[in-house]
């Protein structure tokens, strides 16, 4: 884990409210797992006051060296509005990698990934890691959902990894007009995968977890929470655990990736 001021390498607009920011932080980031996150602070500002959590979208690799990370973000509030104004050469304060990421069980061959909107952010890193583990991409499927076609992100990235894509939109402007969970359920019913990975809004995750339970498929979900410290000190990011009803889990330490069976949504 490191905390340092790092340089913005690029900050590209990729959609109406979506940006990809490259951050030069080679030191301490090379062994990050997919699903882990960083706590980012705009240097020298009092507003926004607290750091904000962002998942790692992918590692920036140059030959054999990791030169930084890319973060995919959606402009939703004060921090991301200011983040969108940054230019290459500006500095941000980054702490990470934090939390527990996706676990890839040995020997899996058939993998389904469900992404809702900006929830795709940590899942591209996961897709790269699946490839690194030499899992045949023809056994992997991405279910990519969004409100409208501009919310469907990273389709090309997954395609270039050789993975099949099932796009859906709420308004039918691209792909099928339905929730992302419809084609997911149909595909699971037809031939269940060995694991489902998902990230997206709470309603979608609930539905994905329901499908995984129904067809008895192991499932890992990445969930979001407000948090102040990111390292288990403030205990602000509590979520209810499923078995230990008396105890809360914490997104920053126990997650952000949880076994679906462990957490109450």
């Amino acid at each position: 884990m490191f905390q340092d001021k790092v340089q913005v390498l690029w900050n590209r607009k990729i959609g109406p409210l979506y940006y990809k920011i490259g951050l030069g932080c080679g030191r301490g980031i090379a062994d990050a797992d997919p699903g882990q996150f960083i706590m980012l602070r705009l240097s020298g500002r009092i507003v926004p006051f607290l750091r904000r959590p962002f998942s790692i979208h992918r590692l920036i690799r140059n030959e054999d060296r990791t030169e930084g990370i890319e973060v995919l973000y959606r402009v939703v509030g004060e921090c991301t509005q200011k983040l969108a104004l940054l230019r290459p050469g500006d500095f941000v304060d980054v702490m990470g990698p934090l939390g527990k990421g996706f676990r890839i069980p040995d020997g899996v061959r058939r993998v389904f990934i469900a992404a809702g909107g900006i929830g795709v952010a940590p899942l591209l890193f996961l897709a790269f890691s699946l490839r690194k583990k030499q899992i045949d991409p023809s056994g992997c499927r991405i279910f990519l959902g969004g409100k409208t076609k501009t919310d469907l992100l990273c389709g090309e990235d997954f395609r270039s990894l050789g993975m099949a894509i099932h796009p859906t939109t709420d308004d039918g402007s691209s792909g099928e007009m339905c929730f992302v969970t419809h084609p997911l359920e149909a595909a699971v019913r037809k031939e269940p995968p060995e694991i489902i990975y998902a990230c997206g809004p709470p309603g979608m995750l609930k539905c994905v977890v329901g499908i995984a339970e129904k067809f008895k498929v192991p499932c890992q979900i990445s969930i979001e929470s407000r948090m102040a410290c990111g390292i288990g000190a403030c205990l602000g990011c509590a979520v209810k655990g499923k078995e230990l009803t008396e105890k809360y889990l914490h997104v920053c330490m126990d997650g952000p990736v949880f076994d679906a069976a462990a957490v109450e949504l």
């Binding site: 009092i46 507003v47 926004p48 006051f49 607290l50 929470s225 407000r226 948090m227 102040a228 403030c234 205990l235 602000g236 990011c237 509590a238 979520v239 209810k240 008396e246 105890k247 809360y248």
Partner: peptide
Amino acid sequence: VPAPGNPPPRTVETPCGMLNAIGLE
């Protein structure tokens, strides 16, 4: 004895500060 703390959400940022209601977990 161990204390579970309060239900989430437990924190929110406010101008130049934050509110917390961790509940001494």
